[in-house]
Amino acid sequence: MSIVFALNIGSLFRSFPGNIAQGMIWGIMALGLYISYKLLNFSDLTVDGSLSTGACVTVMLIIAGVPALPAVLIAFLAGCLAGCVTGILHTVLKIAPILSGILTQIALYSINLHILGNKANQALNINEYSLLLSLRNVNMAILVILAFAVVLIGILYWFFGTEIGSSIRATGNNEQMASAQGINTNHTKVIALSLSNGIVALSGGLLAQYQGYADVGLGRGAIVIGLAAIIIGSVLFENIHKKDLNFAVALSSAVVGGILYYIAIGIVLWLKLPTNDMKLFTAILVAIFLSVPHLSFKKGKGVTNARD
């Protein structure tokens, strides 16, 4: 107890806005991951690379004089291309999903170095360039990210209600059935992976502007953080709601999950736990949340019973 009292509660609260901003950016990343992980049922490790690609492309374009918004949109397209490569490796060359993603991810590491002009990182000074967001003004940043999240959720809600979007969901749910209904599952997979990685790259572009630099290692472990956001959000929302989530709510839950994850990280840092253990902490957290639905199903009740 004495340790807790020795900590300054005020500093914890002061860290919240920054955690919320970062958590929301990762929440946008989680929206992209949601498409591959939840809808397509494809564990896509490309995201670790495409997040960095988005950051690198955005930073280099802004430095080259491209306005920030188009730069982020071009980063989105770069991410789409990366996802498309993974999709082709899997559908045309018949490489297993996880391996397809790893191959693209590894390849992207070199490509990202090239994008940064053979450097491992590149600073982006808010004083020299006009950026969409920056940690200098966290409240403003939160609003900008919120706007991106709302627009993206709206677009995804529409897209996955269209004929093409529904065939993607059918592919992820039951590929055999999709084929029998005349859906070209190779096409739907490539489209889904492209869109997914496009959004991940876009979040990378936002992250680079927020923190003021791009780094080739930025995306390392991104898939775990994205999964954490998706799972924390869905476990939480499903236990409050107690029935199937509307698709827009399910997407929003991923963004909320990202925020909660970063607040948890903030608390861990505030408790002055060793930061070297952060990845270990994340892995344990994700493992716990991944297992919670199964543990609570066994009891036939809500998540709170898992502890009983």
């Binding site: 529409w158 093409i164 065939s167």
Partner: peptide, 9 residues
């Protein structure tokens, strides 16, 4: 057997 489009399903 039909081409799928971006029409709301």
């Amino acid at each position: 057997g039909q081409k799928r489009t971006l029409k709301w399903q």
